[in-house]
Amino acid sequence: MTAAISCYRTAFGAVAVFRNVLPVGTIHFIELAVGGGLFRERACERTMTS
């Protein structure tokens, strides 16, 4: 998630408006402002099954 945020900042000048961080320190989602608009990037949960 932090790599994606860094990419949005570099490529589009995105600014973090709000971030929801879980108690373990993982970012659950973040709202970013770009060019007068807002968007939300959400962490994906990956579950492995056998």
Rank of each mutant, 00 (worst) to 15 (best):
M1C: 00
M1L: 00
A3E: 11
A3C: 06
A3W: 03
A4D: 00
A4N: 02
I5A: 02
I5N: 01
S6V: 05
C7Y: 15
C7R: 15
Y8R: 08
Y8M: 13
R9A: 01
R9E: 00
T10R: 13
T10D: 09
A11D: 02
A11I: 03
F12V: 05
G13E: 11
G13P: 12
G13R: 13
A14E: 01
A16M: 14
A16V: 15
A16C: 10
A16P: 12
A16G: 05
V17Y: 06
V17S: 09
V17D: 08
V17H: 07
F18I: 01
F18D: 03
F18Q: 02
R19G: 00
N20R: 15
N20T: 03
N20H: 09
V21G: 01
V21N: 04
L22F: 10
L22W: 06
L22M: 14
L22Y: 12
P23S: 11
P23M: 09
P23R: 14
P23D: 11
P23I: 08
V24L: 08
V24G: 01
V24T: 03
G25K: 06
G25C: 05
T26P: 00
I27G: 01
I27L: 05
H28G: 06
H28C: 07
H28E: 14
F29Q: 09
F29D: 08
I30L: 15
I30E: 03
I30P: 00
I30D: 00
E31S: 03
E31Y: 13
L32I: 14
L32E: 06
L32V: 15
L32W: 15
A33W: 02
A33Y: 02
V34G: 11
V34C: 14
V34T: 08
V34S: 09
G35Y: 03
G35V: 04
G35M: 07
G36D: 04
G36A: 12
G36N: 07
G37S: 10
G37Q: 14
G37C: 05
L38S: 13
L38R: 15
F39C: 12
F39E: 02
F39P: 02
R40Q: 13
R40M: 12
R40Y: 01
R40N: 12
E41I: 13
E41P: 00
E41H: 02
R42Y: 11
R42T: 15
R42D: 08
A43E: 09
A43V: 08
A43Y: 03
A43F: 04
C44H: 06
C44S: 06
C44F: 07
E45K: 09
E45Q: 11
R46M: 12
T47N: 05
T47L: 14
T47W: 09
M48W: 05
M48D: 06
M48F: 07
M48I: 11
M48C: 07
T49Y: 15
S50G: 09
S50H: 04
